[in-house]
Every structure is written in structure tokens, then in C-alpha cells.
Write a protein that binds this DNA or RNA. Structure first.
Length: 417
RNA sequence: GUGGGUAUAGCUCAGCUGGUUAGAGCGCCAGGUUGUGGCCCUGGAGGCCGAGAGUUCGAAUCUCUCUACUCACCCCA
């Protein structure tokens, strides 16, 4: 037996309807917000991710599935969804389409990490990418898309956390302030944070070490160092959220793990699904398109983990809808081919018809109908076949009604309507 | 990469301090007379008790090593 790889998961037939439910709602929401789907390859030049995601991030640094293909190219499985979209936006001159260009994707992403609850080596993300608009409204719309999807899936109680991490200009000033603050207490920081101090002091704010957290508590806040433009933007976002009546918390400790973010960052966090509780994370990345080699273009978006979405829905008891069941089961007594052919002709009329293909006894076929959740059952034996009349049994009530064989399709259709 | 936990049937688990052919419930398949599901009853299939080594007359049970899975840290969705 060859087993499945660590950190990967099968979606089994008993549970695939959960995914379909989510995909169905994604389709509905993306239509409401006029988002167009974009699909990019599962693998790209490694260089794209080095430049896009950032070569100092853990994600590309130690978590990428990177290998050489037979042509000697270094390629990597996508560790996140944005870089490929940016590449495609530039490569296909999508800036020529009416802006802002509103896109979404659904894709597997791959990261070589130790799996745990809510964390896999291959997981799936629904993501939104909106290019060309730099307004606070555009940020808020992106948040609304996520929020609307949550609502349609019956998920309530998620907390929206927002922050602004500024632009390169104000970040410079803030980094300097952070460095001087932490430098005074450098001996009390953990080993990794001492390293962070020089390279990326922002990260110290996120450290889970008790001591570091304590020190970070009184660290200067990014929000106090925003430049005029960034400050106004952040205020604009908050004002719009308030007008919409959407509750949120400003958490100036949010530092997303991808280097490309500027200004707004946000996440939707769930309780009770384990330590990995961020269901959706996103923000603005105004420098990314240029970074990859295109003309400067503001952009904002998010990534949402489908597996974590399912986890959340399961723990709060949200409904995934009904598992699909057959409309009609055609049980036969010694007439398997007749039943088989009839089932097929009914399907042509849009009826989900099922029949036995294992040579089961009538009783066994009845049990099967029950287990499959068939709404109606018809028994076809010699006499019915000869007379052209059958009894249609409604499984739920057990009641039977006569119906001519020729009219079964209409009978079932009427019942469904 | 660093810690902790767990490994017995498809699933959830019993199996006391080592003692014959390893168990239950659920699920699956078949039956409970002549052509009707849910409840009930009967039977069947299905386990190298995670792998290897050791202790012992004898190991699912004790010891060691490995592996897998899992939770948590780091980081992230």
C-alpha cells in the first residue's frame, strides 16, 4: 500500500458536497461583486516567488516546493495565489481592460510545513485580487466580499481585525523608531527576535514569546508613524466600515507574513478551530506589480483557506446543505436491463434515476434505496412491465400511487415542483 | 527545524498485573420462504494488534530503535 503524502488530504465522496456548497456560494458572491475568475498555473519560475512574495519570508525561504525540471529550469509550486496573478496581469497587459480589474481565483497552494490542525502542505485558497484602485473604498469592498461570503455560508462571529503598516516612506521612520525602542532592551528579547531587530523589527511585534510580547506591548505603534497619505487612507477605511455598521478592531500588532503588503492589512479570525484561526487574510500591496516588472499599479486582495472555512463551519454547526439524493430508484424483479434502460431514458428528461447493477434481491434494492435517500421507488416486475403500470412509492411516507410507465417522468416532475 | 501525544477491523474503541484459534458497536455483503426500505434477529467478509530487534517456555500486552499519524511552537490560510 502506498499512502497519501503527509499534509495532504483526499476529499471523499461523502464530504465533497461541502466543497460544492462553498464553491456554489463563491460563485454567487463573485457575481454580486462583478469579479472575474482568473486561473494561473500551479507552478511558475521560482524567481517569480522570490521577487513577489519576498526572499526574506519563511514561505519562500524554507517552505517552497522547488525543483529543477528536465530543461534545467528552477520551478516552484505556488506557495500563495497573488504572485501568479500579478505575473499574468503584466504579461497579458490586463491594465488595458477597464480598471479597477476585479478578479478572483480558486487554487491549491503548497507549503512544506509541519502539518497541524488547520494547516496542510497542500491547501486550497479562494482569493480576490483587485488592481488599479487605491481608494479606501476599494479596501473595504474587498473586506465586504469576504464578509458576504461568510454570511452566505452561515458563519457568524468572526472578528475583523485591521491595521495599516504604512508605505515604504513611513515604514522607514517606523522601523527606526522600533529599532531604537527594542535596542534598549535587546538583552531581554528571545534569540530569533534579536536577529529580527536588524532585518525586520516589525516581526518582533508578532512574537509569541511571553517576554517579547510584554516588551512589544509598549513599543511604538505603526499608526503613530504613518505619513499623511497613509493616515488619511486608514481613517478612510475605518470611516467607511463604521458607516456600513461593520464592527472591527484595530490591531496594530497585525503584521502579515508576506513582504508585499502596504497600507491596509486585515484578517478575519475564528475561535474554536485550533491554534490556526485566521480564516482569511489580506490587504493592500501597491508596490507589487512594479516589483514584478510592470508599471506601478495599486492592488488589494485577500486569500481565504477553504479547509479552514470548512473547519469553522463544522465547529459552529453551520449547514452545508443537503447531500444530493436520487429522485427515483427503479427496483426490478428479474428485469435488470429494462430497469437500466428506463433509468437512462428518465435521466434524459432531467430526473436523477438510479437502479441496481449488482443483481440484488428486491429487498436488498429497497434497503439500498433507503440508504441512498431516494425520494421515490418503483418496482418493475413481469406484471408491471406487461401492464405498463407501476406503483410509485414515496419513501418518506410509504404511500403508493399508481402511474403508467409512460408517464413516470411527468409524475416525478410534478412531485418535485 | 523544535517539543508533546497516539498507533488493535473501513470507523469508534475494549483487551486487567504477558497465557491457547484477538473482541464489541457501527458500517459493508447476504439471509429471516412465494415481490417492498427504516426497527429487530442470524450469518459472512474484513486484522502479520504500525515496522524491526530484544526479554521470555510463551508478547497486542514488557524493553529499545525506527516509522507514521496527531497536537503545539515557528510561520501562515
Amino acid at each position: 500500500m502506498i499512502n497519501i503524502l503527509k499534509g495532504t488530504k483526499d476529499v471523499l465522496p461523502q464530504e465533497s458536497y461541502k466543497w460544492q456548497k462553498i464553491e456554489h456560494e463563491i460563485e454567487a458572491v463573485t457575481r454580486l461583486y462583478n469579479l472575474h475568475r482568473i486561473s494561473t498555473p500551479t507552478f511558475e519560475h521560482t524567481e517569480l516567488f522570490l521577487r513577489g512574495v519576498g526572499d526574506t519570508t519563511d514561505i519562500v525561504n524554507k517552505e517552497m516546493y522547488t525543483f529543477e525540471d528536465r530543461g534545467g529550469r528552477s520551478i516552484s509550486l505556488k506557495p500563495e495565489g497573488t504572485a501568479g496573478v500579478v505575473r499574468s496581469y503584466i504579461e497579458n497587459s490586463l491594465s488595458q481592460l477597464p480598471q479597477p480589474l476585479k478578479m478572483y481565483y480558486e487554487t491549491p497552494v503548497f507549503r512544506y510545513e509541519r502539518p497541524q490542525a488547520g494547516r496542510l502542505r497542500e491547501h486550497h485558497q479562494f482569493g480576490v485580487e483587485i488592481y488599479g484602485a487605491d481608494s479606501p473604498a476599494q479596501d473595504v469592498e474587498v473586506m465586504l466580499i469576504a464578509k458576504t461570503l461568510f454570511e452566505r455560508l452561515g458563519i457568524s462571529g468572526l472578528e475583523l481585525r485591521i491595521n495599516s503598516i504604512g508605505c515604504p516612506t513611513c515604514r522607514k521612520a517606523y522601523n527606526a523608531a522600533l529599532k531604537s525602542y527594542f535596542a534598549s532592551r535587546v538583552d531581554e528579547l528571545c534569540a530569533t527576535c534579536r536577529e529580527r531587530l536588524d532585518k525586520n523589527p516589525l516581526r518582533i511585534l508578532d512574537c509569541k514569546e511571553e517576554k517579547c510580547g510584554e516588551i512589544a506591548k509598549n513599543a511604538p505603534s505603526v499608526l503613530d508613524y504613518l505619513c499623511e497619505d497613509c493616515r488619511a487612507h486608514h481613517e478612510g477605511v475605518k470611516a467607511l466600515l463604521t458607516k456600513l455598521g461593520i464592527s472591527y478592531v484595530v490591531d496594530d500588532k497585525i503584521v502579515r507574513g508576506l513582504d508585499y503588503y502596504t497600507k491596509t492589512v486585515f484578517e478575519f479570525v475564528a475561535g474554536g478551530i485550533g491554534a490556526k484561526s485566521t480564516v482569511c487574510g489580506g490587504g493592500r500591496y501597491n508596490g507589487l506589480v512594479e516589483q514584478i516588472g510592470g508599471k506601478p499599479c495599486p492592488a488589494v486582495g485577500f486569500g481565504m483557506g477553504i479547509e479552514r472555512l470548512i473547519l469553522t463551519m463544522t465547529t459552529i454547526g453551520a449547514s452545508f446543505g443537503e447531500e444530493p439524493t436520487p429522485d427515483l430508484f427503479l427496483a426490478n424483479i428479474g428485469l435488470p436491463d429494462e430497469a437500466f434502460l428506463l433509468a437512462e431514458s428518465l435521466r434524459k428528461e432531467g430526473i436523477a434515476a438510479e437502479c441496481d447493477t449488482m443483481g440484488r434481491s428486491l429487498k436488498s434494492q429497497m434497503k439500498l434505496s433507503d440508504k441512498l435517500g431516494a425520494k421515490y421507488v418503483v418496482v418493475i416486475g413481469e406484471s408491471e412491465w406487461a401492464a405498463g403500470v407501476v406503483k410509485v412509492k414515496e419513501m418518506k411516507s410509504g404511500e403508493e400511487e399508481e402511474c403508467s410507465l409512460a408517464n413516470i417522468a411527468n409524475y416525478i416532475k410534478e412531485k418535485k415542483a
